[in-house]
C-alpha cells in the first residue's frame, strides 16, 4: 500500500448560482469556498460546523454530485473532475455515501433485498446467487439478521435499522472511502452511539477511510482521529481530535465547545455564552475573516480586512486566525 493520500482536495469551490425569474444571474451562494485537505488511507476524520456552513455541499461535491466551481479533487491519484463514463462509474463505486436523512434515503417501494441488489446490478454483478451472498454478508456486517429484514420495506424498520440498511448499501460495492453526512442526527440519542460505534468498527476492520459530518462535538472524540472545523464555507481549524478538543485555538471553535452541555443541574441557572448574531450570508460573506462580526477578539483594521491564512502555531494543528500569527 502506498503512502500517497487517498484523497487530496485543493482550493475546492462549490458555488451555486442564484437566478431571478430563472435566468437573471444575481449572485452566487459560496457553499464551499477554498477548502483544502488530504485524507490518508484508513483514517477516520470528522467535519463539524453550524447548519448551512457548507458541510453537505462539500460531501456532495466529493461524491461527484455537484460539479466544483474551482479547485481540484484528486482520488487515488486521479483528478475526479475529468472522469466520465466507465471511469466515473468506477469512482462512484469506490466512494460510499451515508446520507443525512435515513428516512428520505431509502426508496419506500423497495424491500431491503431489492435495495441492496440495485447497486450490484448497476455495477455489473449479474449472478443472482453471488448478489444474494453479498447482500447477506453485508447485512450481517451491520448486525441485521438477513432473514428478519430482507423482505421488509423501509417503513417497517425503526430509524436505527433504516440507518443500518443505508450503511449496508454504502458498503456493498467495497468502497475505499465512506462519506457519512450526519449519520445519526435524525436518530434517537439512545441509538446514536450504537450506530457510530458500528461505523467505526467496520472502518477499522475494512481499513477504509471514513469522513463523517456531524454537529455533535461530544461524541466526535470517540469516532474520529482528526477533526476539521468549518465556518461559512471554509475550514478554520484542523488538528488531531484530542489536540483540537483540549486546545481549541480558533475563537469560533472555542464558542462551539463552550455551547456544549455535560448533564449538570447547575446548567439551568446560568446563561450560556454564545457569539452574537448568526452565521453570515454566503452570497456576500464578510471581508477579511468571515467570523469577525461575531468574534470577541477581532482586531479592528486587520481582521475585517485581511483574510487569515491557515497557520500552524502547534505541531499538526492548523488554524485560520490572526491571533496565532
Amino acid at each position: 500500500m502506498s503512502d500517497a493520500p487517498l484523497l487530496e482536495v485543493r482550493d475546492l469551490r462549490t458555488w451555486f448560482e442564484l437566478r431571478q425569474w430563472g435566468f437573471l444571474r444575481v449572485g452566487s451562494v459560496r457553499a464551499v469556498d477554498g477548502v483544502s485537505f488530504e485524507l490518508a488511507r484508513g483514517e477516520a476524520v470528522a467535519f463539524v460546523g453550524e447548519s448551512g456552513c457548507g458541510k453537505s455541499s462539500l460531501a456532495r461535491t466529493l461524491l461527484g454530485l455537484h460539479r466544483p466551481s474551482g479547485g481540484e479533487v484528486v482520488f487515488e491519484g486521479q483528478d475526479v473532475a475529468g472522469l466520465a463514463g466507465a471511469a466515473l462509474k468506477r469512482y462512484r463505486a469506490r466512494v460510499g455515501y451515508v446520507q443525512q436523512d435515513p428516512y428520505g434515503a431509502l426508496p419506500p417501494f423497495m424491500n431491503v433485498r431489492r435495495l441492496l441488489a440495485e447497486p450490484l446490478i448497476v455495477h455489473g454483478v449479474m449472478d443472482r446467487a453471488e448478489r444474494e451472498r453479498r447482500i447477506r454478508a453485508v447485512l450481517e456486517e451491520v448486525r441485521l439478521a438477513p432473514e428478519e429484514v430482507l423482505h421488509k420495506f423501509p417503513h417497517m424498520l425503526s430509524g436505527g435499522q433504516q440507518q443500518r440498511v443505508v450503511i449496508a448499501r454504502a458498503l456493498i460495492l467495497a468502497p475505499h472511502l465512506i462519506i457519512a453526512d450526519e449519520p445519526v442526527s435524525m436518530l434517537d440519542a439512545s441509538v446514536r452511539v450504537e450506530i457510530l460505534s458500528l461505523l467505526r468498527q467496520i472502518q477499522r476492520e475494512r481499513e477504509l477511510t471514513l469522513a463523517f459530518i456531524t454537529h455533535d462535538l461530544a461524541t466526535v472524540r470517540h469516532f474520529a482521529e482528526r477533526l476539521f472545523v468549518m465556518y461559512a464555507g471554509r475550514i478554520v481549524e484542523q488538528a488531531p481530535v484530542d489536540e483540537l478538543l483540549d486546545h481549541p485555538l480558533h475563537p469560533y471553535t472555542q464558542a462551539l465547545l463552550a455551547a456544549i452541555a455535560d448533564p449538570d443541574a447547575d446548567n439551568a441557572s446560568r446563561q450560556r455564552e454564545i457569539p452574537p448574531g448568526e452565521p453570515p450570508s454566503l452570497v456576500k460573506p464578510p471581508a477579511g475573516c468571515r467570523f469577525h462580526p461575531r468574534c470577541p477578539h477581532a482586531i479592528a483594521g486587520h481582521c475585517d480586512r485581511d483574510e487569515p491564512p491557515m497557520l500552524a502555531p502547534r505541531p499538526g494543528h492548523g488554524v485560520a486566525c490572526w491571533l496565532h500569527e
Binding site: 425503526s158 440519542a189 439512545s190 441509538v191 452511539v193 450504537e194 460505534s197 455533535d216 462535538l217 461530544a218 461524541t219 472524540r221 470517540h222 478538543l245 483540549d246 465547545l257 456544549i260 455535560d262 448533564p263
Partner: peptide, 21 residues
C-alpha cells in the same frame, strides 16, 4: 444506564449504549 450512555465532551471512555429495545 441512560446517564452512562450520555456522551461527555471531556470523557476518555466511549459512552456505552443500552442493549436491546
Amino acid at each position: 444506564l441512560l446517564m452512562a450512555s450520555v456522551p461527555r465532551l471531556h470523557q476518555a471512555e466511549r459512552p456505552v449504549h443500552i442493549p436491546g429495545q
